[in-house]
Amino acid sequence: MKAVLKKIFLSVCWRLGLFHVSRYLMKDKLQILCYHGFETYDETSFRPKLFIKKATFNKRLELISKYRFPVLTLDDALYKLRNNKLPRNAIVITIDDGFYNVLGIAADILNAHKYPVTLYLTTYYVQKNSPIFRLVVQYMFWKTKKREVSFGGCAWNKNENMDVRIDNDKERERIIWDCIDYGENECSEPERMRICQLLGSLLGVNYQQIRDSQILSLLTLDEAKLLDRKGINIQLHTHRHYFSVDDEAKAKKEIVDNRKVLDEIVDYPTNHFCYPSGIWNKDQWPWLEQMSVYSATTCLPGLNNSECPAFGLKRFLDGEYINEMEFMAELFGFMELARALRKKTKDFIIKWTPDFRQ
């Protein structure tokens, strides 16, 4: 019901011309769009925040073109932002992780529109040529039609009860994370693949089909090189999709290992970074600077002005769960205006209402 009311409210605001007012008010700010995977089978039903349909993505780019929002490269946009030379309502398009379907779907759509894009590529699975273990486990539990499964003899099942009701949300989440934690912390990649094969057998889900279809796989080295030849700019996203917030050595190693693989793919500097899973804090900023990183994008919503810190750039995370009117509201800066007004209202209440401060 809340989503329906929000859509109605935004539609009314659009008809009243308020989106165009917000576009003017936000004209000097930079919008950075973020995407992840692109659907080839049923991924948007599985993770609508992570994946987007081909038709939806193409429609997004058509809207950007229709309303004449300039799309810049990341390098160009950041330079112009810092020097107050940004064209009105400029946009940068970014893609995180490097799913295989970036090559199979997104690249051709972007090239058809002649829009530049930055791909933040995490590289562990690029080298392993196997699906992402965590996503495969979650996908198979989502996909199965079984209601109860016996996990007797499975090393990851830490519960004495071997029969698990996977139609029970709490039990299903427990066994999923027991499996993921065991695989990620105690197993090699070949052992994780064997876990997936066994799990597929227990759940009645074809693991080999998941592997062959590459719906949950990242690009291979050769595929990433092909994207580079298509003009897609490839940048840093850590090697293992993890960036420590309290261990400087581990954090820097992620950059070193990530950059080492990217050096096999591209022949230009990799100086832009994206925090994996949007987890970051300001203590990491000196580490990034020491590693010759010039910018870092977050998952915080909002637009960027010339005063935004280079290592705290905001983005709008788009996906199939976002309807067209919501996308338009972000594109035109209406949601940014709404966030600013909401913050001012909250600050006013805190300032003048003693009980609220407590």
Rank of each mutant, 00 (worst) to 15 (best):
W285L: 04
L199K: 14
R240Q: 15
S45N: 11
R192W: 01
Q290W: 01
I109P: 05
L25S: 09
E248I: 12
I105F: 00
K346N: 11
V256G: 03
K158L: 10
Y207P: 05
Y294S: 10
S217E: 09
R211P: 00
H113S: 07
V102L: 12
H272G: 10
Y124E: 13
L86A: 10
F38C: 10
I105D: 01
N304T: 11
N58S: 14
G152R: 12
P48T: 00
K7D: 07
R315I: 06
W280I: 04
D246W: 03
R357G: 11
F46R: 04
I93D: 03
L218I: 10
N159V: 14
N271G: 10
L78N: 12
F46Q: 07
D347R: 15
R357F: 07
D246G: 08
V266Q: 12
N271Y: 10
C13W: 00
K146Q: 08
V12L: 12
K143W: 00
L33C: 07
R134H: 09
L81S: 09
V4T: 11
G319F: 00
L78S: 12
D212K: 15
L63R: 15
K128Q: 13
I349F: 04
Q235K: 05
L227F: 06
H20Y: 12
C179Q: 04
L25Q: 11
K66H: 05
I175A: 10
L313N: 13
L227G: 14
G104F: 00
D247L: 02
V136F: 01
A329T: 12
K145H: 06
D212A: 13
L226D: 13
L16C: 13
H239Y: 15
I64R: 02
F327V: 06
L218Y: 04
W156Q: 08
E289P: 02
V266R: 14
I210V: 13
D28L: 05
Y242D: 04
K250F: 08
G98W: 00
K250N: 15
I234S: 14
R172A: 10
L341S: 14
F19K: 11
D178S: 08
L288P: 10
D318R: 02
K225W: 01
I93K: 05
P354E: 07
G302P: 12
D97L: 06
S213Q: 13
E173Y: 01
H36C: 08
F133Q: 06
H241R: 08
P269A: 12
K170D: 05
S295E: 10
I175C: 04
F51D: 00
K145D: 08
A90W: 01
S201W: 00
I232G: 12
I234T: 13
C179L: 03
V92E: 04
P70G: 11
K314L: 09
A296R: 14
Y41M: 01
E189T: 15
A55F: 00
L33S: 06
F311V: 06
N305C: 09
F46S: 03
I234C: 13
C299I: 15
V136W: 00
Y67L: 02
L78A: 11
E289Y: 03
I176D: 03
F332E: 02
E171G: 07
F9K: 10
F151D: 10
G37V: 05
N281P: 01
I8S: 11
H20Q: 12
R47T: 07
E171Y: 04
W142L: 03
F51N: 00
C34L: 14
M335Y: 02
